[in-house]
C-alpha cells in the first residue's frame, strides 16, 4: 500500500523530570492518505502525542519521531516538518490571528514567504474548499464556532501540507458545528488527498477513520479498524470511553438475549441500526 509517512519509535515523554510519564514507549506508523483517529480520556497523552507530530515537542532520550523520513530531533528538519504536518487546535478563538477571514487564511503563506500572486490563488482555493465563499472580508468574531474552525482548517490547507492533525478541533463546538466541521474534514481527506490525524474523545467522530488508536495513561491500548474497537466493550470500559449510541443499543439488547450482530454484522449509524431492528422484528 502507501508508504509510511509517520514513524514513531520508543517514544517516552514527561513534562518535567521526576514527574510521571505522559507517554510511555509509543511505537506507531502511519501511512500516506490514511485517516487515523486517536482516542482517549483526559490525560491519556493523546494531545501530547499530537504535538510530537509537528515538532512542537521534540523527543528526548532515545525515542525518535520521523516525519517523511525526517528526524524531528534535528533542528534543520523542524521547519520542514511543520510545513508537512499542519495542526488545528481546540479553541477556535485562540488560533485565528488576523482581523479578517482571508487575511487569516493567508497568514501561514505570508510566514513562509509565498509570492503574492500565488498567495491570492491559494487563499481563494482554500476558501472554496472549506465553503467559506462570501465570508472573505468577515471578522472572525462574527462567525459561528464551526465557521471559525473551518477558517482555521482553510488556513492550514492553504499551506498544502501532507498531513493535517486536528487536536480536539471539534470539542468546543455545538453538535451542529461538529457535524459541519466533520463534513469538511472528510472533504479534505477525500478531495484534497491529505492524511488526517484526528484527536478526540468522541467515538462518533472516529467512525469514518481507517484506524482507531485507543490510548490510556500514555500507552496505546489498541490500534485497529473502527468496528473492532467499537465492539470491544471491555476495552472501551477500560479506557473510560463512551461507546456510540448504536453500539450501546446493541450491547444492551444483547444482554436481553437479542443479538443484532447475527442480523447485521456492521451497524455504525442510526439507519443501519433501524434496518437491523426492523429485520429482527420481522423475524419474530
Amino acid at each position: 500500500m502507501n508508504k509510511d509517512i509517520v514513524r514513531i519509535h520508543n517514544l517516552s515523554f514527561q513534562y518535567r523530570p521526576n514527574e510521571p510519564y505522559v507517554l510511555t514507549d509509543i511505537n506507531l506508523t502511519i501511512k500516506e492518505r490514511e485517516w487515523i483517529t486517536i482516542v482517549g480520556h483526559n490525560g491519556s497523552g493523546k494531545s501530547s502525542l499530537a504535538k510530537f507530530l509537528n515538532a512542537l515537542f521534540i523527543p528526548d532520550e532515545d525515542g525518535e519521531v520521523y516525519i517523511y523520513g525526517l528526524n524531528t530531533k534535528e533542528r534543520q528538519n523542524q521547519g520542514k516538518v511543520r510545513k508537512l504536518v499542519a495542526m488545528v487546535f481546540q479553541n477556535p478563538d485562540n488560533q485565528l490571528v488576523a482581523p479578517t477571514v482571508e487575511d487569516d487564511v493567508a497568514f501561514g503563506l505570508e510566514n513562509t514567504g509565498v509570492p503574492r500572486e500565488e498567495m491570492i490563488e491559494r487563499v481563494k482555493e482554500s476558501i472554496k474548499i472549506m465553503g467559506l465563499e462570501g465570508f472573505e472580508k468577515q471578522e472572525p468574531h462574527r462567525l459561528s464556532g464551526g465557521q471559525k474552525q473551518r477558517v482555521a482548517i482553510a488556513g492550514v490547507i492553504a499551506m498544502k501540507p501532507k498531513v493535517v492533525v486536528l487536536d480536539e478541533a471539534t470539542s468546543m463546538l455545538d453538535p451542529v458545528g461538529r457535524k459541519e466541521v466533520m463534513e469538511y474534514i472528510r472533504r479534505v481527506h477525500n478531495d484534497v488527498n491529505m492524511t488526517v490525524i484526528m484527536i478526540t474523545h468522541d467515538l462518533n467522530e472516529a467512525l469514518f477513520s481507517d484506524r482507531i488508536i485507543v490510548m490510556k495513561e500514555g500507552k496505546i491500548l489498541k490500534d485497529a479498524p473502527p468496528i473492532e474497537v467499537l465492539r470491544d466493550e471491555e476495552l472501551l470500559k477500560k479506557s473510560l470511553l463512551k461507546p456510540t449510541f448504536e453500539f450501546e443499543v446493541q450491547s444492551k439488547l444483547k444482554e436481553k438475549g437479542i443479538n443484532l450482530f447475527e442480523i447485521s454484522p456492521q451497524i455504525t449509524n442510526q439507519k443501519e441500526l433501524v434496518d437491523a431492528l426492523c429485520t429482527w422484528k420481522q423475524k419474530m
Partner: peptide, 23 residues
C-alpha cells in the same frame, strides 16, 4: 489565550518579520 495563540502561530510557521511576504 496568548499562549495558545503563540503555539498556533508557531505551528503555522511564524518566525517574525524576516522573509515574510504580504497578502
Amino acid at each position: 489565550r496568548a499562549e495558545d495563540l503563540a503555539i498556533a502561530m508557531e505551528s503555522r510557521g511564524y518566525e517574525g518579520g524576516e522573509g515574510r511576504t504580504k497578502f
